[in-house]
Structure formats: structure tokens, C-alpha cells
């Protein structure tokens, strides 16, 4: 287990974002958090969860699938898929992280959804343990461990945050 102090979190964010694009949950207004690309000075939200779930990173509500080019009676179909860049999502809650495994069961079996897979292959999820679940939380009921679920999970206490590194991909970060 590695430990870093909470006030060094900014340095960690800077380090990660020097290598890959980093997204963290940040407050848009009191009580309403959303994922945003990390920039110097951005504050990690204290909200339990974002209004739009982290699912948007892998399976957005809408996306362009193909482009068409019409030339008289000819229709050219243009594949607009590009290799996704590597990115890190920090601060995903265990419930959201578990949902990815459910999405995987749909999109990563034959026929594989290559759009989804592309983003999944390039995304690293860092979960954040819940130290103050809400009255509406359901992790217990679904047998989800609110402190784990991902390749890398972090627990935040008042002074320190702990990170547990478990896979090679994470170590390379």
C-alpha cells in the first residue's frame, strides 16, 4: 500500500496529467458535481457522486458513429473511429465502477462494440472509497465493497489518502 497525504493530492494530479489526460469530479455549484478535465487549481469534489455517472466516458449518451459522403447516387461510408487517447478517471465510486463490469458483459461479448472497447482499453479507473455513504446507498444490498472495485482504489481520511496498487497498468502510471 502506498500513502500520500491529502494536501499532496494536487501534485499527484499534476504528475498523472503530465502523462495522460486526467478527469476528476469537481463541484459545479453547491452539491452538484461533474467530471472535468483536471487543470491546475481544480478542487476534488466532496460530493458523494456526480450527477452524470462516469459511464459517459465509455458509453456516452450520444456519439457520431459514421460519416456519409453523398456523390450523386454513390454513398461513401467513412469510418471515423480513431484510437482513443489514454486517460485516467479519478474518484469513481464503487457502485459506478461495478457498473462497468455489467456494461462489459453487454458490449465486450461478440459482437464486440469496438467504440466501447476502444475507450475501455485506454481508460484507467481509480476508485475512491466511500467513507460517508448516503441513506440512499445500496452497495451493501448488492454485495459491493464500497472500498474496492478497481485496478486502483483510494481511501481518503481526513489527513491521508491511501492508494493500493494492484496491476501493471497502474504501476506504469
Amino acid at each position: 500500500m502506498l500513502k500520500i497525504s491529502v494536501n499532496k493530492l494536487d501534485e499527484l494530479f499534476a504528475l498523472i496529467s503530465s502523462k495522460q489526460t486526467l478527469y476528476i469530479p469537481t463541484d459545479r455549484e453547491a452539491g452538484i458535481a461533474e467530471y472535468k478535465k483536471w487543470e491546475q487549481g481544480m478542487k476534488l469534489s466532496n460530493a458523494l457522486n456526480t450527477v452524470r455517472s462516469a459511464k459517459d466516458f465509455f458509453f456516452p449518451q450520444t456519439e457520431n458513429l459514421v460519416d456519409f459522403k453523398m456523390d450523386g447516387k454513390n454513398i461513401e461510408i467513412i469510418d471515423i473511429r480513431e484510437e482513443s487517447e489514454d486517460f485516467v478517471i479519478f474518484g469513481v465510486r464503487a457502485c459506478d465502477a461495478r457498473s462497468f463490469t455489467i456494461l462489459d458483459k453487454v458490449f465486450l461479448v461478440e459482437p464486440v462494440d469496438s467504440y466501447y472497447k476502444n475507450r475501455r482499453d485506454h481508460g484507467t479507473v481509480v476508485t475512491m472509497a466511500c467513507t460517508r455513504p448516503a441513506e440512499t446507498c445500496f452497495c451493501g444490498v448488492f454485495g459491493i465493497d464500497a472500498t474496492e472495485q478497481a485496478m486502483l482504489s483510494a481511501t481518503m481520511t481526513v489527513k491521508t489518502s491511501f492508494s493500493r496498487l494492484t496491476t501493471k497498468r497502474v504501476r506504469s502510471l
Partner: peptide, 13 residues
């Protein structure tokens, strides 16, 4: 209740 939550009060019963 959202105004109560916006005050940072959570776990409301």
C-alpha cells in the same frame, strides 16, 4: 431536501 444537502448535510433520515 436538496437545499439541506447543499449545506453539506448528508445521510438525512
Amino acid at each position: 431536501v436538496e437545499k439541506i444537502k447543499a449545506k453539506g448535510i448528508t445521510g438525512i433520515l
